[in-house]
Amino acid sequence: MSSPDLSKFAATSGTSGTPRIVFEDVEKRFGKNVVLNGLGFEVAKGERVTLIGPSGSGKTTILRLLMTLEELSGGYIYVDGEPLTHKKADNGKRTALRPKEVALIRRRIGMVFQQFNLFPNMSVIENIIEAPVHVLGQSKEEARSKAQSLLDQVGLGDRGDEHPTRLSGGQQQRVAIARALAMEPEILLLDEVTSALDPELVGDVLGVLRDVANTTDITMLLVTHEMQFARDVSHRVMMFDEGHIIEESAPDAMFSNPQHERTKKFLQAIL
């Protein structure tokens, strides 16, 4: 885990310095279906932003583009001022970066998925140390002891040797969070991480994430339907509709006094 608690009052958007994330004129098409078109926004270092909006509004696509799970159809994404997948060449042409260049920047980003996606052929602890050992080059002992403290942190300190399939959904998701944190990411993407869970298991997972939010300065992008959670942990909420940001503000303002008609309707429907 990186340095504790700098973040409670950390950056909101617009603070000085290079933004952690920049979307510039981003376009994403799936065949003829245009999901994002000319999308631009910035996220400051340490900022936690919740993306809300009806399904199909492009929220998850934004996370998947950042994680390089989808290919950008147009525009640019910058992380700490560096291009993620495409750059403007000197002649102004848009060129794709080589996979090795992409891989270097991608290391700063971690993601937790709706379906956990733990590796079933590995034990819990093996899931967590796999990337630290084989990507960051940590020794097994070092990675193991870090993994153990992460497991303690998510309340699963005694389950390291089990296989993920023997855990409940909520426990699997907490392992997935530990696995993502083991890479010491600067940016953590949370894609509907409680949507696949039974209601009684949601609380533990959100508790772990609250803890992460309160004790680290990791920049977070969240897609979630847990509005109370979004309100508690995020600095800013962005409301999406058809690939565009139609409204953004601090969570209190967004939830108690939405301006846009679409936002009002959306919040009424889900709250």
């Binding site: 994680m67 998925f113 996606n117 796999e130 990337a131 084989h134 890479m183």
Partner: peptide, 12 residues
């Protein structure tokens, strides 16, 4: 999701 998790962990 298995491939995606591997990408998210930057596994070669």
């Amino acid at each position: 999701g298995q491939w995606e998790a591997a990408t998210a962990l930057s596994l070669p």
